[in-house]
Simulated assay, not measured.
Amino acid sequence: MTSLPRRAIDAMTAVTYSDVIVGTHNLDTVVAEHNSRPRKTLGWETPAERLSILLATTRQ
Rank of each mutant, 00 (worst) to 15 (best):
E49V: 05
D10G: 02
R37W: 07
R6S: 13
E33M: 15
R6G: 00
D10V: 11
H34Q: 07
T24R: 14
L51H: 04
T41N: 14
V22W: 11
T13M: 07
D19T: 05
R7E: 12
T24F: 14
T13F: 04
T16K: 13
E33K: 15
G23P: 01
P38R: 04
L55F: 07
T2C: 10
T13G: 08
A11C: 07
L27Y: 01
L51D: 05
N35I: 04
A48F: 06
R50S: 00
T2W: 10
L51V: 00
T58S: 02
T16A: 06
Q60D: 08
L4Q: 09
T29K: 12
S36H: 11
L51W: 07
R50K: 09
R59K: 02
W44Y: 09
P38W: 06
P47G: 01
P47F: 01
A8L: 15
V31I: 14
D28W: 04
T46D: 08
R6E: 06
K40S: 15
P5Y: 10
P38A: 04
I9V: 00
G43T: 00
N26D: 11
R37F: 09
W44H: 09
I21N: 03
D10P: 08
E45Y: 07
E49I: 05
I9N: 04
L27S: 02
S52H: 13
L51A: 03
L42T: 05
P38N: 11
S52I: 05
E49T: 08
V30Q: 00
E45L: 11
P5V: 03
S3E: 08
E33D: 15
L42A: 07
A11I: 01
A11S: 07
R7M: 13
W44K: 01
P5C: 11
S36V: 12
A32S: 14
T41A: 11
G43C: 04
M12R: 10
M1K: 11
T24N: 15
S3M: 14
D28A: 12
E45S: 09
I9S: 06
T13R: 12
R7Q: 12
V15Q: 06
G23M: 05
V22N: 15
R50Q: 04
V31W: 08
M1I: 07
P38L: 10
A56M: 04
G23C: 00
L54R: 01
G43P: 03
I9P: 02
A56L: 03
V15I: 09
T58M: 01
T46S: 01
Y17G: 13
N26E: 14
M1F: 00
